[in-house]
């Protein structure tokens, strides 16, 4: 599987939407998760995200991302559930820890939200090119190009750094460093020294990119130099309508 921020080429109806529409929908779905306090609604939005993934032709990828998010959500659920004191006590544990019904409800909502909020952003990045995101940020939102470029470049570097870290870990394992152990805490302890090569390679890579951009006249670029136009069609209108309906419904339920 590609990294969860990598663009996946395609020609689905979602791929063809205006990038601005995709941005609005993704942030709209995130907002609707916070507007509701109903667990079922948040779960429904998460399922809707999966359906969008299937519609975009990346059902396997979105399912894998969703599963990864659920694992993270489960860890956060366990961290939260012991520290909410309000509500009726369901379970008393050693060391003064207790599980309450309010704690379970709050932690479950928190965990569900994490998955449901992250999915639309990940989907949007999977079906929208970084250059298109930068262009619409500049054209429609009036953000200076340099800031849009910084944002999209930072996003683009995340999978590269992930790959670099995997390569560094591979190299260290080949030297006998026991990254292939099952012990999570030992792995974390071994990871710390690897920040040095990762940081150095990252700084080098960024420096090369900056020099390369300057050599190609990056600083000469004005606001009017973007040439790409994005049409707004019936599909965009329909998608935005559905998004508004979801936001309104989640605010009311």
């Amino acid at each position: 599987m590609k990294g969860f921020l990598d663009y996946v080429d395609g020609n689905s109806v979602l791929h063809r939407l205006n990038p601005m529409t995709k941005l609005i929908i993704s942030f709209g779905l995130c907002a609707s998760c916070f507007l509701t306090q109903n667990h079922a609604v948040v779960a429904a939005i998460a399922l809707f995200d999966l359906c969008l993934g299937a519609l975009a032709g990346i059902s396997r990828r979105s399912a894998l991302i969703f599963i990864s998010l659920l694992k993270l959500s489960a860890a956060l659920f366990l961290l939260q559930v012991f520290f909410v004191r309000q509500g009726n006590i369901l379970l008393v544990l050693p060391f003064g820890l207790r599980v309450t019904d309010a704690g379970v409800s709050f932690s479950a909502l928190f965990a569900l939200r994490l998955a449901a909020v992250t999915m639309p952003l990940s989907l949007m990045l999977s079906i929208t090119r970084m250059s298109d995101i930068a262009n619409v940020l500049v054209r429609y939102l009036g953000i200076p190009y340099k800031y849009a470029f910084v944002l999209t470049t930072a996003m683009r570097f995340i999978p590269l750094f992930t790959e670099e870290m995997a390569g560094i870990m591979e190299a260290q394992t080949a030297r006998g460093v026991r990254f292939d152990t099952g012990n999570f805490f030992r792995k974390v302890r071994l990871l710390l020294p690897l920040c040095v090569p990762l940081l150095i390679s990252s700084v080098r890579r960024i420096e090369v990119s900056a020099i390369s951009a300057e050599l190609r006249g990056f600083n000469l670029r004005g606001r009017s130099s973007g040439y790409k136009r994005y049409s707004f069609g019936a599909n965009d209108a329909a998608a935005l309508f559905i998004c508004v309906m979801i936001i309104v419904a989640s605010a009311m339920i």
Binding site: E164, G167, A171, Q172, R175, P193, L194, P197, I200
Partner: peptide, 9 residues
């Protein structure tokens, strides 16, 4: 490895 920097830490 081809890239020695990955081995140095």
């Amino acid at each position: 490895f081809q890239n020695p920097d990955r081995q140095l830490c």
